[in-house]
Amino acid sequence: MKKDYLLLLVVALAAFALPMILPGDYYVEVFLFMGINILVALGLSLLMGYAGQISLGHAGFYGMGAYISGALSAHLGWPVPLAALMALVATALVAGLIGWPTLRLKGHYLAMATLGLGIILYILFVQLRSITGGASGLAGIQPVHIGGFYLDTPRRYCYLVWALVILSFLFSINLVRSRTGLALRALHYSEVAASTLGIDVAKYKLQVFVFSCVLAALGGILYAHYITFISPETFGFMYSIKLVVMIVLGGMYSLWGALLGGAFLSLLPEFLHRLEDFEVMVNGLILLMILIFLPGGLVGLLQKIGEKIRGHS
């Protein structure tokens, strides 16, 4: 368990060093977007690995963060922190409204409900033209600044993103080690037993789900205020799927799976420029292959390799 904090320290140092070492803005930007993906994936990993529930609408929550914060800053000129806070609160409320009826039930109703919500949100991003700019997108989103200091270069913004990634990981690791984490792990293995020990199963699932959606929204906010222009296709169903692929690829039962999976899938398009039309299918194939041949994901693989090395020495 101490190991997790040590690992996080290593990641933090790497995140501090990389923007300075990387050879150009392009690579820094890749690293920046990787951070955003990992942030969103981290929330989903808590939901899938600890509450045992799937969300197929995380792209929608990601979009809610981006659009609410973006629109408030672009149309009404709200300062970024206030707009961001508003976006986080609104996302938490919507997540609560969806999660409350579905998470009380046994089974996987949340997956279908979030799938539906993701579709609805996408329709809204396209249809509410006066707010979202419709299919042509929303421009004029304010960049982030602290007083007169503008975080408008990839390098500066990258530090903001990764600082939040590290803090979110710290929070999540703490959480898993706390009473709440104990309860979450318990209900993952047996809801019945957990409930007879005084654990309000639905409440804990709901808390994780809402937290998970808030992290997704935070990712969206970071994305919107960096790019300063957003359009609906970024927040479509395929991104929700990609997030699920990240978690499964990285390893469902460890928070570090979100880091590895998120990093891997963020880099994949850089290596496979000509993927284009095949990308959809490749995502699905990765998902199936990992489930069948490597159910523990990359983290599981690394653990096995680690055990082998230790076993031989």
Partner: peptide
């Protein structure tokens, strides 16, 4: 491997079928 794994598997299969159909 459990129901949740199968469900994720069906999600994967749906994406493969969709992507395949597009091609």
């Amino acid at each position: 491997l459990g129901v949740i794994t199968v469900i994720i598997g069906t999600i994967g299969a749906s994406v493969v079928l969709k992507g395949g159909a597009m091609l």
